[in-house]
Write a protein that binds this DNA or RNA. Sequence first.
DNA 1: AAACCGGGGGG
DNA 2: CCCCCAGGTTT
Length: 412
Amino acid sequence: MVESTGQSARPATFRTTRQWTIADGHARSQRRPHRRPERADRQCRTGPREHRRAGGKTCGAAAVTVFADALLAWFDRHGRHDLPWQHPRDAYRVWLSEIMLQQTQVATVIPYFQRFVAALPSLHALAAADEDSVLALWSGLGYYRRARFLHRAAQLCVEQHQGELPRDFDALAALPGIGRSTAGAILAQAYGLRYPILDGNVKRVLTRFHGIVGHPSEREVEKQLWLRADEHTPAARTADYTQAIMDLGATVCVRTRPLCDACPMQAHCIAHRDHLTAQLPTAKPGKRIPTRSTLMLILRDGEGRVLLQRRGPQGVWSGLWSLPESADSDGAWREAQRHAQIEDARSLTPFVHVFSHYRLQIQPLLFDHAAPARAIADNADLRWYAIADLPSLGLPAPVRSLLTALPEPAVP
DNA sequence: AAACCGGGGGG
DNA sequence: CCCCCAGGTTT
C-alpha cells in the first residue's frame, strides 16, 4: 500500500540547493493553514510506541499528523515530481539515487543517474558488471568507495536475497553503504513502508521545528531527532512524506536564511517563534583538540613578590611574562630551587585553558616564603614582581587571573 | 579554511 | 557502544 499520488520527488539528501520554482508558489501557499479537521490519533492504536524490532529503527505509530498533513499539502503543490528515479520508481532506482544523492546535488546526479541506469538497468546487471565499469560510470561523482559498496551490495543481493533488495529493514541495513537512514529512505520510497529517515535536511528541519539545541553528533540530540522523525512519519503516503521533508529542508528550511514565509510549518515552528533559526541547528562543536598539561610554579617571597619569566620567541604566549613551568612535580621542585630557597609547596585548584589547537590543563603550584637566590635573581627574562606591578605587564590571561586570585600566605 | 554528512570501522 | 574518519564540494 503505497501512497496515493503515485509519483514523488526525491530531493537532494544533503547540502543541496534545489533550483526549482520556489519563488512565488511557496510564498502564496503557506499562508493558508492547510490544516484538516485534525485527527489526532488516527491509525495508531498501538499504544506506547513499540520500538523494539530492528533495534528501534522501526516505526510504531505516527503520533502527530499536523506536521505531516501540512507538509504533504505543501508537497503536492510545490514538491518535485519529475525526477528520473521516480519514473519508474523501483527499488533499484531508488537505491541508486539515494547513494548518488548522498554526495552530490540533484542537478549533478541526474545525468549520472540516467547514464548509469541506461548501462546497468537492473540490480542483476549491476551485480554482473565488473567493478571497473561500475567505477567508470561513477567517474566524476566522487566518493568512489560508495560505488564499490553499491556494487558489492548488488552481488550480495543476488547471492542472498534472490536478486532483490530486501524489504526487511535489518537485512537492508546490513548491506554495505546502507545505514539506518538510507535503509529507511529506500523502504519508504520504494515500498511505501513506514520508516523514518534522518538525513541532513531532515535534521535541520526537525531541530528548528522542535527547537532542539545541541549538535546532532551528541548522542542525546541524535536520539531525540530519530524520535521526532519517527513520530512525524505518517502511515499513509509515506513515500511522498519522505520526499517532502527532504524537499522542505533542501529548498525552504535551508541552512542560512531559511525562507520561513514559504514554510507550511511556520506557525508551529519553535525556532521561528523564538527567533532561533539562525542558531539552529547548533553549530558543530569544535573539533577534538589534544589536551596538554603543565605545572605552573608560583614562587612568592616574603614581600609578596612573585617570580615571572619571559617566554621565548617560539610557541604560545611568546614574549609574554609568565610563570616558570614544569612537566612534573620533581621537575617543578628542581626548577623552583634554582631560583629560590623554598620550603614547601601548595597545589592550587587546577584549571583548563583552551587554545584554538589544544587545551592546556594547568596545575598551579604555590611556593610561599621563597627566599630569592642571590646572583641569578633578576635579569632580562626573569624577575620578581610585586603583584601591584602586574597590570602593566603583558601576561597571558590565565596567568593574570591566577596571580590576582592568589590565596594569602600560610602563617609559618 | 572549515563545515558539511551517513556510514564504516576501530577501540 | 561510542568515537573518529574518509571524501569532494560549498561557504
